[in-house]
């Protein structure tokens, strides 16, 4: 058991190292959400909301931290896992004594760790440059929501990796699913009054619940520590939001288990990618 635990840590480090050496992934996970924060505050201003005594960045920053977490887990895992399968790396790992679950836990652990880094970076920039305030009373509930949300989106990333045909298709499929949902999930547009059907659609998907569970922790107008099932008026509550995220996470994990393959898929794309790598 001690040995397996060491292997897990080592696999997480291995995946982290690959992440840091792939500038594109690092950019989209860490820098891209920050760019949104800069843009939003530049376009809409970072004015103080008088009745709450905080600036608008108080709402933008947590929502974008969640977006960064979804990129670090869902988008990253979909793309890197599908590419690793195309390259034959998954197949090779399967031929070693490394238990498959440790390899997967290593990938998920790395993704959640990077989500956490991305979130800490976003909130720190918010606090230092945009007057965002951290509320001690809700901190624990916010952290739990963030980790559970990142875990759920990691499971959904593995599911999508299992479903896409190739690493070439993965970025398009991941972004084409995440971005539209982000627009109806209070990530980019906060405090708007959308049509009822958009409200309804947003509630079906896990991202809006992720944004609410984490973002409400930074809303000084709400009361409570967050540890209750459902919010009363003016109250912060994560229970119901976490339940929706957990349901999506478990569903994603089940589909991932059902459709995951370690072998490259015999498609034009995967063959081309393999020959490109081996032929240089």
């Amino acid at each position: 058991m001690g040995r397996d635990f060491r292997l897990i840590l080592q696999q997480i480090k291995y995946q982290n190292r690959i992440f840091w050496r792939t500038p594109v992934g690092a950019f989209f996970t860490l820098v891209f959400p920050l760019m949104f924060l800069l843009l939003f505050t530049a376009i809409f201003g970072n004015d103080e909301i008088e009745e709450l005594g905080v600036t608008t960045a108080q709402f933008y920053a947590p929502a974008l931290a969640v977006f960064g977490a979804a990129s670090a887990t869902y988008t990253n895992l979909t793309i890197t896992t599908a590419i690793a399968r195309d390259l034959g790396i998954l197949k090779k790992v399967r031929g070693t004594p490394l238990p498959p679950w440790i390899y997967i836990v290593g990938r998920v652990g790395s993704a959640v760790w990077l989500a956490l880094l991305s979130g800490v970076l976003m909130m720190s920039v918010g606090v230092i440059f945009f007057g965002v305030e951290i509320i001690g009373r809700t901190f624990l509930a916010a952290l739990i929501s963030f980790l559970l949300g990142a875990g759920a989106f990691a499971a959904l990333g593995l599911m999508l990796a299992a479903l896409v045909s190739s690493g070439d298709a993965a970025p398009a499929v991941a972004n084409a699913t995440l971005l539209p949902i982000a627009f109806i999930s209070d990530v980019f547009i906060v405090n708007a009054n959308p049509p009822a059907w958009i409200e309804f659609a947003g509630n079906l998907f896990p991202l809006k619940h992720f944004v609410a569970a984490f973002g409400d922790a930074f809303n000084p107008g709400l009361t409570g520590s967050g540890f209750s099932w459902s919010a009363g008026a003016g109250e912060y509550a994560i229970g119901a939001h976490l339940a929706v995220m957990a349901a999506w996470g478990v569903g994603g994990a089940i589909l991932a288990l059902r459709f995951f393959t370690w072998e490259p898929r015999g498609g034009e794309n995967s063959r081309r990618r393999r020959s490109r790598v081996s032929g240089n």
Partner: peptide, 13 residues
């Protein structure tokens, strides 16, 4: 020990 037909290595490591 298995050496597969296809080279399968992480390019950045």
């Amino acid at each position: 020990g298995i050496v597969l037909q296809q080279t399968a290595l992480e390019p950045e490591l």
